[in-house]
Each structure stands twice: as structure tokens, then as C-alpha cells.
């Protein structure tokens, strides 16, 4: 009897934690999107007003931001500075892969990031500014969509996890 009781508590605890984990994923994603948006604002300033190269701009923005996205940018900036005969796209895609593994961004966000790098550094300053502004708009849309649905989805995750836990207990008993 005691064993069954302990088992039920463990299952319910795990289910609640799982629900909280998925809820927190949304919070982390929102925080990451906000960090990326802030970094893009700084990047635009570095490129458009200081005429910094991408390596200088990414390193400086990364240093100023300090958060996870900032650290990622600083690493990318240093890789660009090294110029190990790789093209920008190669370095960019590898950097996007790295941040994708951190798990804060959704696949949709990662897709936008990949796309953003395609024309970066190419053509003139106006093009860079337009590219960054367009990406910031996309990030804004992502954040708004997330904010609109976040609370409902967090509640849904919690409820589903508890129901799932109850269901598993019933099945096992």
C-alpha cells in the first residue's frame, strides 16, 4: 500500500514538474526574444552610425548586452575576426546551430535567424539597416504572438500534466 502511495506521489510530482518545465520554456523563449531584439537595436546602431564591420559590431554588442544572446554574439564576432577562410554564411549557420542547441528559441525563431544572416554584410548600409529593421519587426510579431497565448498555454500545460499524471496513476493501479 505504502509503495503504491509513494509511486502515486512520484508520478504526480513528475507530471507537475513537467508541466512547469514546458511553461518555463515559454518564459525562457520570451526572455531570449527580448534579448535578441535588444541586441538587434544595438547592432543597428553599431552598423549604421559607427559603420562598424560585422565582427566589430557583434563583439561590441555582445560585450554590452552581457546576457546569453550577448555571449553568443561576442563569440560569433570573435570568429568573424579570425577570418579562417570561411564564408560569412558558414560561420553564421554554425553560430545559429550553437544557439539552437541552447533550446531557448523555437524552430520558427531559428528559421528566422538563419534567414536573417543570408544578406547580412552584403551591399550598402541602407541594405543592412533595412535587413535589421525587418528582422526586428519579425521578432516583434513573434513576441506579440507568444505574449497573447503564453498564459493560456502555461495553464494548459499545467492542467494537462496533472490530468496526464492522474491518468497514468489510474492505468497503473
Amino acid at each position: 500500500m505504502w509503495i503504491k502511495l509513494v509511486g502515486c506521489i512520484v508520478i504526480m510530482g513528475s507530471a507537475v514538474l513537467l508541466g512547469m518545465y514546458y511553461g518555463n520554456c515559454l518564459t525562457r523563449r520570451l526572455a531570449a526574444l527580448r534579448q535578441l531584439y535588444q541586441a538587434m537595436q544595438l547592432l543597428k546602431g553599431e552598423i549604421c552610425y559607427r559603420h562598424a564591420t560585422l565582427s566589430e559590431a557583434f563583439t561590441e554588442v555582445g560585450r554590452r548586452c552581457g546576457h546569453d544572446v550577448g555571449a553568443w554574439m561576442e563569440t560569433l564576432g570573435r570568429k568573424l575576426m579570425d577570418r579562417r577562410s570561411a564564408t560569412f554564411m558558414e560561420l553564421w549557420l554554425s553560430a545559429v546551430e550553437t544557439i539552437s542547441r541552447q533550446g531557448a528559441f523555437s524552430q520558427e525563431d531559428i528559421g528566422l535567424l538563419r534567414e536573417f544572416g543570408k544578406n547580412l554584410g552584403y551591399l550598402d548600409l541602407q541594405m543592412q539597416e533595412n535587413r535589421i529593421l525587418f528582422f526586428m519587426e519579425q521578432l516583434d510579431v513573434q513576441m506579440k504572438e507568444l505574449l497573447d497565448t503564453m498564459k493560456e498555454r502555461q495553464r494548459l500545460y499545467r492542467t494537462l500534466s496533472i490530468l496526464g499524471g492522474c491518468f497514468l496513476i489510474v492505468v497503473l493501479l
Partner: peptide
């Protein structure tokens, strides 16, 4: 093209 990219440090716009 690749050499030009490296020469401009991936940032042709900065060397307009």
C-alpha cells in the same frame, strides 16, 4: 567573391 568577403571582413557596406 569569397576573397572579397574576407578582405572586407564580411562587411562590404563598411568600406563603401
Amino acid at each position: 567573391k569569397d576573397t572579397l568577403e574576407l578582405i572586407s571582413n564580411y562587411s562590404l557596406y563598411a568600406y563603401e
